[in-house]
């Protein structure tokens, strides 16, 4: 049975990128239902973050006659209407319906000048789901980047903008980079302006959100010659390795920053000393037993042991980032051990 349980539509993945561009309007070229599904999900996310701003999402609202005669005229009219909202960029997402009826979305988008109009092929039946849409949007938007000289700075690529802890993850990576004197050039794409995207090629290193973004990393490496690091730092050892890796890319001596980070980690494990000697087992979000190398490492560093009869502690998905992520993880584990 091919029933997906843990993924969203290609459109949702693409929208998680395009709606994060400041001043953007995203057009979903298809029936209004496709746009409603996604607009409602984005609204839920904004409400959860107590963020009253809603992304600007337009639907071409195709009806039966458009399906028969083609939807390109409707798209042309929608782009004109979107342009009237004075956006920084218009992103056009295709849907299963327009993919199936064969609308030439790319050609309609090419017919506009002045405001950038970017076509992102996201027909939902492509099979890749959310991730495919996320990747496709990043690759399409990279066409806005101007080939330019490098500056000692890093880009963050493929942040999962729908993650609840998005800002905490970003702040932790920014803290770690600041500790070795590396500023962030472009967040590609999270609360980003079109101007910042155009400077994408200037970053000396692309730091990918996680290894699922390696396709984008390779694409940008080929296009702009920018090396990449495969993931935000995870776990105590992973955080130290992250600092070493960034240091290597920029030919920096990071030993001082590493010593400070190790001391910070030691302070955190001391803060949670009440966990020492506890026996734990790892559970996924559904309560099923699972295993995790990073969790074993954290448990060991905190003085805990892994045992089939131990307290059930959660393995979060996504895993919290960096040293501060370890602190958040240990709070949850301590609560689980008390429960």
């Amino acid at each position: 049975m091919s029933t997906p349980r843990d993924s969203g539509c290609t459109l949702t993945g693409a929208l998680s990128v395009t709606t994060e561009i400041e001043g953007s309007v995203t057009i979903i070229h298809g029936p209004s239902g496709c746009a409603h599904h996604n607009f409602s999900l984005l609204h839920a996310l904004c409400a959860g973050r107590d963020d009253p701003r809603l992304p600007r999402v337009l639907s071409t609202d195709l009806a039966e006659t458009d399906i028969i005669f083609g939807g390109e005229d409707a798209l042309d009219a929608a782009i004109r209407r979107a342009a009237g909202k004075n956006p920084s960029i218009i992103c056009v997402l295709s849907t299963c319906v327009t993919g199936a009826i064969g609308d030439d979305v790319e050609a309609v988008c090419r017919g506009f000048s002045g405001i950038p109009v970017i076509s992102i092929p996201t027909a939902g039946f492509l099979g890749g789901g959310f991730h495919q849409g996320h990747v496709q949007a990043l690759m399409s938007l990279s066409s806005l980047a101007e080939d330019d000289g490098k500056i000692p700075s890093a880009n963050l690529v493929g942040e999962k903008t729908l993650e609840t802890e998005r800002d905490e993850h970003f702040n932790e990576v920014r803290r770690l980079l600041a500790a070795i004197g590396i500023p962030i050039c472009t967040r590609f794409v999270c609360r980003t302006s079109v101007g910042e995207i155009s400077r994408l090629s200037r970053g000396g290193c692309n730091i990918l959100r996680d290894p699922s973004m390696e396709g984008v990393g390779r694409f940008l490496e080929e296009r702009f010659g920018t090396p990449f690091i495969s993931s935000f730092p995870i776990g105590s050892r992973g955080t130290i390795q992250f600092l070493e890796e960034v240091g290597r890319v920029f030919s920096l001596d990071v030993s001082g920053a590493i010593a400070e980070e190790e001391a910070r980690q030691a302070r955190i494990f001391h803060e949670f000393r009440s966990l020492r000697g506890k026996r734990v087992r790892f559970c996924d979000p559904f309560g099923n037993r699972t295993d995790s190398e990073v969790c074993r490492e954290v448990a060991s560093a905190a003085g805990m042991s892994v045992h089939p009869e131990g307290y059930p502690v959660p393995v979060p998905e996504p895993f919290p980032v960096g040293t501060e992520g370890i602190r958040r993880l240990l709070y949850r584990w301590r609560r689980a051990c008390r429960a």
Binding site: S2, S7, C9, H36, L41, F125
Partner: peptide
Amino acid sequence: HGSAGCYYYPSSVLHLPLYCSSVTDRDI
């Protein structure tokens, strides 16, 4: 009977069992 995207929203708001044929471009 459609793409996985059409399944995702009803599934997330109705909180009831739903199934999907998850058609792909090959099926089209």
